[in-house]
């Protein structure tokens, strides 16, 4: 089950109106057969860049974060529905990040080039393109006759 994150920038409106907007957007998720895990208010503030939505230019927005689960097939419909809502200035749906573990490779990257793993791989890859060399099979590491 994929948990999604929906970040919405709403028009800055008085509280009762905001309540109806949030109810409407939340109901859209429930209608798609999903459920909400979290609803977070990230505050009302000036946007980093002004945005034109539905023919109006906004430079101030209320940020809201939903964490929810819906069937993946209905994500497109949900996104489209929010796009037609004139109270929503901007919306983005991302998958919730799961913590992944990996080794820090900085130590290897700070080595001089010939010691780095990726450079060694490159050299090995380039060696494959070398022209085939004739092997004398004499058991000697030099050519015994005059050339």
């Amino acid at each position: 089950m994929i948990t999604y994150e929906l970040l919405m920038l709403l028009r800055s409106v008085p509280k009762p109106e905001l309540k109806t907007i949030l109810k409407r957007t939340a109901n859209a998720i429930f209608d798609k057969g999903g459920f909400i895990r979290k609803l977070e208010n990230l505050g009302t503030r000036e946007m980093p860049y002004k945005t034109s939505a539905h023919g109006v230019v906004y430079d101030r927005a209320s940020y809201f974060l939903y964490e929810f689960n819906v069937p993946p097939s209905s994500i497109d419909k949900l996104f489209d529905e929010y796009g037609r809502d004139i109270d929503i200035i901007r919306r983005r749906i991302y998958k919730k990040k799961e913590a992944e573990t990996f080794e820090c490779t900085l130590h290897d990257e700070l080595q001089p080039p010939p010691y780095r793993k990726n450079v060694q791989d490159l050299i090995a890859e380039a060696r494959k393109l070398d022209k085939p060399k004739f092997k004398y099979n004499t058991g000697l590491d030099y050519y015994p006759f005059q050339k």
Binding site: L7, P48, Y49, C104, L106
Partner: peptide, 29 residues
């Protein structure tokens, strides 16, 4: 001075934040 993987993550997250309208693109706030 980040490792390759972390740098990749940071770049992706910055693009996501800018796209979502959380972060400025042509300047640091």
């Amino acid at each position: 001075g980040l490792c390759t993987k972390q740098q990749e993550i940071v770049e992706k997250e910055i693009v996501k934040a800018q796209s979502a309208g959380l972060m400025a693109t042509y300047l640091k706030e």
